[in-house]
């Protein structure tokens, strides 16, 4: 996997003198295509600031953010909007759909902004919404959609322009568990099948199940937490730091929910490929 995003020495401060706050201090990070990264941390730890800078919505105080060979921290005000339209897909906690537009038009408008219009844009919007299961709500005003339907429209909007990077802020916070799981599944699909890099900011522990990497942002700095891994034998999700058993084979580390699964694995390896 190639490195899509390269962040070097990223920093952001607010205010001056006594009221000076360093929200993000000297972050280095590399993200690969198709990787799902979950950013967690206490409230006010700078998660939203980090996400805003990554998405070109907030100016950096110091550092570089390289995305697909472009340092967005150095882009001018005029160059940022079209770059955002092409490169990012945003998913907001409150959905942030345009109330005056229908579901289809909300997706279509993102395509318009990126330079596509007419039949092509309309068809793509319809295709995306149908794929997400809201085909029967195409022309409904946003107010009449349920929370889950709104989230799907928001996701359709986010992926309409085939972005390299999706930035999601608390994507499951306003959803019930059914729709939350749905959203997680969709995000994972995007990453693995489309190769989209997904950066999620959230408090929701359930998202650890889909994340490849979990980062803990505290006092403006990252600490990597281990992502959850799957037991290759029974498929259960395990925190590798606290796995009862683990085995190293061919330079890979496997974690197991129990000694039983580990034994089974050793007995069948290398005839079964995991």
């Amino acid at each position: 996997m190639t490195s899509l995003v390269h962040i070097h020495d990223l920093a952001r401060t607010f205010g001056e003198g006594e009221s000076r706050v360093e929200a993000v201090r000297g972050i280095d990070l590399d993200l690969a295509s198709g990787e799902i990264v979950l950013v967690m941390g206490p409230s006010g730890s700078g998660k939203t600031t980090f996400l805003s800078m990554l998405g070109g919505l907030l100016r950096v105080s110091a550092g570089e953010i390289w995305i697909n060979g472009t340092n967005i921290a150095a882009l001018g005000e005029r160059e940022l909007p079209p770059f955002r339209a092409r490169t990012f897909g945003f998913i907001f906690q409150d959905f942030n759909l345009i109330a005056a537009l229908s579901a289809q038009e909300n997706v279509e408008v993102a395509l318009n902004i990126a330079g596509h219009s007419g039949r092509a844009a309309r068809d793509r919007a319809v295709e995306l919404l149908e794929g997400l299961g809201v085909a029967n709500r195409l022309h409904f005003p946003i107010e009449q959609l349920s929370g889950g339907e709104k989230q799907r429209v928001a996701i359709a909007r986010a992926i309409a322009n085939r972005p390299a990077l999706i930035l999601a802020d608390e994507p499951t916070a306003n959803l019930d568990s059914h729709h939350g799981a749905e959203t997680m599944r969709l995000l994972r699909e995007l990453a693995k099948e489309e190769g989209t890099t997904v950066v999620i900011v959230s408090h929701d522990e359930r998202l650890r199940e889909v994340a490849d990497r979990v980062l803990w942002l505290e006092d403006g700095r990252f600490k990597t937490l281990q992502a959850l891994v799957r037991d290759p034998v029974c498929g259960m999700l395990i925190d590798p730091d606290r796995a009862p058993a683990s085995v190293e084979k061919d330079a890979k580390t496997f974690s197991f929910c129990s000694l039983g699964c580990r034994d089974q694995f050793l007995a069948e390896y290398p005839s079964r490929v995991y």
Partner: peptide, 18 residues
């Protein structure tokens, strides 16, 4: 009243002129 929506459009890449 729609400032959140306009902020979103800006985030999506809508230019100032637009």
């Amino acid at each position: 009243e729609r400032s959140r929506e306009y902020a979103t459009l800006k985030a999506l890449g809508l230019r100032r002129i637009a």
